[in-house]
Amino acid sequence: MMAIDRDAERDAITAAMQRLLHGRPTRSTGALTTLQLAAEAGVKRWVLTHKHVDLKEEFTRRKTEANGIPPAFQHLHARAVDAEAAAQALREDNNRVRERVGVYAQVIHELRTELDRRTGNSTQRSPVRSLPTSVT
C-alpha cells in the first residue's frame, strides 16, 4: 500500500508539473516555485522536497529552461520586453529633443539680444515680439 501512495504522489506531482509548465494551473497560483508545485499536486512541500527529490530537481531544471516563465506566458513576456525597449528609445529621443529645444531657445535669446542691441530697443520698437508668458 505504501508503494501505491508513493506512485500516486509521483503521478500527482508529474501531472502538476505539466500543468504549471504549460500555464494551466488548477490548484495553485501558477508560479513556477517548489511551493506552488506541491500545492498544485496536492501534497505537502516536504513530500516533494524529501521523498521525491528527483521530481523536484526535474521541475527546477525544466523551469530554468523556460527562464522561469510558463510557456503560456512567454509571448506576454516577450511583448513586455519589446514594450520596455520601445519606451526606453522614446525616453532617449525625448531627452534629445529637450536638449535641442534648449539650444534653440538659447539661440533665439541671443539673436533677440543682438537685435535689441543693434536697433536700440529703448528708442525704437523692435519688430520681434515676445511670446506671451501664460496661456489665457
Score class of each variant (00 low, 15 high):
V81G: 06
S28A: 10
D82W: 02
L21C: 04
A66N: 02
R117H: 09
N67I: 03
R6Y: 08
G30V: 04
L20H: 10
D54Y: 01
Q18F: 11
A86D: 03
T33A: 13
E40F: 01
N94D: 14
A66E: 14
V47E: 05
A105L: 14
A83K: 05
E58Y: 07
V128D: 08
E58L: 04
E110G: 08
G102Q: 12
P71R: 07
A80C: 12
T119H: 14
A12H: 13
T33W: 01
T123H: 07
L35H: 02
R96P: 03
E92M: 00
P71F: 13
Q124P: 03
A66V: 09
E65F: 00
T49I: 00
D5W: 03
L21Y: 06
L55R: 03
H52M: 03
K51D: 08
G30L: 02
A66L: 08
A39V: 08
R24L: 02
A31W: 07
V135Q: 12
E110C: 04
G42D: 03
K44L: 10
E84K: 04
W46V: 00
T136W: 03
I4G: 12
A8E: 01
Q106H: 05
A86K: 03
E65Y: 00
R91S: 08
V103W: 15
V43P: 01
P70T: 01
F73I: 07
E57D: 13
L20E: 06
F59G: 00
L115G: 00
R98W: 14
A12G: 03
R96Q: 09
K63Q: 12
E9I: 05
T123Q: 02
G23K: 08
I69L: 07
E92K: 01
E84H: 12
T34Y: 02
L48N: 06
A105H: 08
E65R: 01
G120S: 03
K51M: 11
N94C: 15
R112E: 13
D116F: 00
R19T: 00
K63F: 05
R91A: 12
S130M: 10
H50S: 06
A39T: 06
G102I: 04
V47P: 00
R79P: 04
A80L: 10
V103A: 14
P71Q: 13
A72W: 00
R91V: 13
P127S: 08
L35Y: 11
T14V: 06
E40Q: 05
Q18I: 04
L35W: 03
Q36H: 08
T60L: 13
D5I: 11
R19K: 12
M1Y: 05
A3R: 15
A38M: 04
A38D: 01
T119R: 15
E110W: 05
D116E: 11
Q74F: 12
K63I: 08
K63E: 11
A66W: 06
R24H: 04
L131V: 06
Q124T: 11
R129S: 13
D82Q: 06
R100Y: 13
G102T: 02
H77F: 11
F59L: 00
V97N: 09
D5T: 13
L131K: 10
R45L: 12
R98Q: 09
A105T: 10
V101K: 13
A39N: 09
A87L: 11
P127N: 05
A72T: 00
R10Q: 11
R62S: 04
M1T: 09
K51S: 06
R117K: 11
G102L: 07
N67L: 07
Q106S: 11
A31Q: 10
R61H: 04
K51W: 12
Q88L: 11
